[in-house]
Design a protein around this nucleic acid. Structure first.
Lengths: 192, 192
DNA sequence: GCCACGCGTGACAGTGACTGTCAAAGATGC
DNA sequence: GCATCTTTGACAGTCACTGTCACGCGTGGC
């Protein structure tokens, strides 16, 4: 049976349970039972309970790394990063995706442990982005500065994601908000 | 018996064990045994195993909040934050403290779960700093921007902390490095 | 000197995430 | 139809952490 399908089924079941009774109140046994599998099988398809929620962010991260790699080396890091962030911005143009993103975010915020794990994923993604940037243009900037630059850009992204939390039905201000904060934060001498 | 003393003893015992055999390989039972107490008593004095390592960072965070609060409201956030960071910078001027900071950092980096918990603490501290900044000068800047600003400053601090990891015996370049990165990252229009 | 009270402690049991092991069941190739 | 490889579930174990409870210890009143 398609490994993928089983994983998707487990994730779907888990998500509905998380929505119904909360992340912490939902045990792995609950999920396994409703999915009709044993706990042991659950762990064969899902690395951890956290992964069910954070997998999405991992995929986005991978995608961001890909986008960043495809950007021209002459481009300023700040601009390249903004393009990489399009991975997060673009889906939000559709209401359904926005709702889903907010649901995920609220689940993440509901549990300190989950939030911590989330932040760790972000950290790992940032490190990979730093690698891409330093590889593509060595010597232009010290690794420390690049590290800080990526961190700053993520801080902007993070801030905007957090702010748009209140379940707005209005149009998508995400891109505009991000651009605003990013512009406000843009380091003085980014352009190489 | 002094609650403080017991906690300090446990922390000391734990730290030596972490150094000897690593954080993950050290169980709470190990620590309790060497401290001559039961596991139950361990948890009466330490909230979690993670806390033993991260307590130090919490204290620094509290301290940073205090410093930021004592700064004049007219000062630019960026400058105020740099002053708050002095809480981290100042102790590093002494070799012993630097060594200890590096030890802690290496322990944190050794365990993904610990690192995640660490990042979560940083997140919470940042939120408190944002509160201080928005309280002291409302209307000057949207909360989102302030959030991003604080995140960017922390990114700089974090980057520098990470970079100075290799056990250098040389003089303290931390403050200089931080100033350099902070200057490089300083947003264009910080000065209100 | 004795008793009552309260606090600190340890023993015990339980939960929840996760892992290793193993044997039975199922699918697959020939 | 048989051998083989994979998938699965049952079971037991580890580790962090929590609730409960009774025992011991010191302090205060009388």
């Amino acid at each position: 049976m398609a490994r993928r399908a089983v994983h998707a089924e487990i994730t779907a079941v888990a998500e509905s349970l998380f929505r119904e009774q909360g992340y912490d109140a939902t045990t792995v046994d609950d999920i396994a039972e409703r999915a009709g599998i044993s706990q042991r099988t659950f762990f064969r398809y899902a690395r951890t309970k956290e992964d069910l929620v954070l997998g999405e962010y991992d995929r986005q991260g991978e995608h961001m790394v890909d986008v960043l790699r495809s950007r021209p080396a002459e481009e300023s890091p700040w601009t390249s990063l903004r393009h990489a962030f399009e991975v997060v911005v673009a889906p939000r143009r559709e209401q359904a995706n926005r709702a889903r993103a907010k649901l995920l975010h609220s689940i993440v915020e509901s549990s300190p442990a989950l939030r911590a794990a989330y932040l760790d994923r972000m950290e790992l993604i940032q490190r990979r982005l730093v690698d891409v940037l330093t590889d593509r243009a060595p010597d232009t900037e010290s690794r420390v500065v690049t590290r800080a630059l990526v961190g700053a850009a993520f801080a902007a992204l993070h801030a905007v994601m957090e702010a748009c939390d209140p379940d707005g039905e209005g149009p998508d201000t995400f891109a505009a908000d991000l651009d605003h904060v990013l512009a406000r934060l843009e380091p003085t001498g980014t352009q190489r």
